[in-house]
Design a protein around this nucleic acid. Sequence first.
DNA 1: TACCAGGTAAAAA
DNA 2: TTTTTACATGGT
Length: 320
Amino acid sequence: MGNSHFIDFSSVRRTRAHGLLKDQSGWSHHEMLRAATLSLQGPYDLSLSLDIAGRFSPEPAKDVSIFRSAVRIDGAPVLMEVRQVRRHPLLLEVSSPTSGVIGPLKTLAEWMLFADLDLRPFYRLTARHPKLAAVARRLRGLKPKRPASLFEMAAIAITEQQISLAAAYRIRSRLTERFGDCIGGLWAFPLAERLARAPLEELRAGGLSRRKSEYISGLAKRIAEGSLDFAVLKQMPDDEARSFIMKQRGFGRWSADYILVRGLGRLDCVPVDDLGVQTTVGKYLGDGGRMAPEEVQEALEPLVPYRGLATFYLLAYCRL
DNA sequence: TACCAGGTAAAAA
DNA sequence: TTTTTACATGGT
């Protein structure tokens, strides 16, 4: 007992000394804290956002009061937990059982939950729209959630090509549980380095087609060897990012737009080739039937510069 | 049991 | 150049 007390104390001191090198305030930084506060730009409803996210997968969210995710910090799996600070609509608390990662973990949580998105201008736009006004009112505080990495997002796009979201989800789960890492009962998506050295046959074993296995394997290999870096997409304008993605084998127009809006959070981008988008936009903004890509474009014109976000709201509304 | 499900590259015409 | 075709799994 006395021993463990002593050990704890020395570890705290060492940590504090390290922290002081970086910041005069000492205690309040990365090495020491296991929790950090994340401030939001405008309205946000974490529970609603988690609930809606769950409705896009075959496994509905169990506990929408807390966001738990297995992510990676410098490649190492870490459990991320985010909850709304008690009675405070504009603050989230991000924490982890793992020490020494709270700084980068906070940055990642901000990315995944879209902390810097201010929904108010979007709501001002939708308020004047005949259909979106009611949808936005019903879903007030909803923000899309982004995957932890663009590599994972790319894999999501590939798996969801052509087959149902449910089938794609099962295939991804098998991929993750075979090549990823488990922490806190959750699975972190595999590193590109891991998938790069997996034989095609092993990728296919999870249910991927031969073609899709090649897409993912090729992508993983290019990322692992350093010849491709998706991080550059974050600095590119929408058009440039779209053509960059489409240069990669396995990524057509649908995948590029899907990654833009869902992976990068480009709020005006819409995958107009998407079956779900065509049926949902047709249902709410058309005569009820499925729309052609050009019709989707036209129907969403009044929602510039939030066509992608508006589409997300319609898809979410459809699943309530 | 079929058939469709939030596409894409490659072959055939 | 434009039009077919193969592909894989899960839900209905």
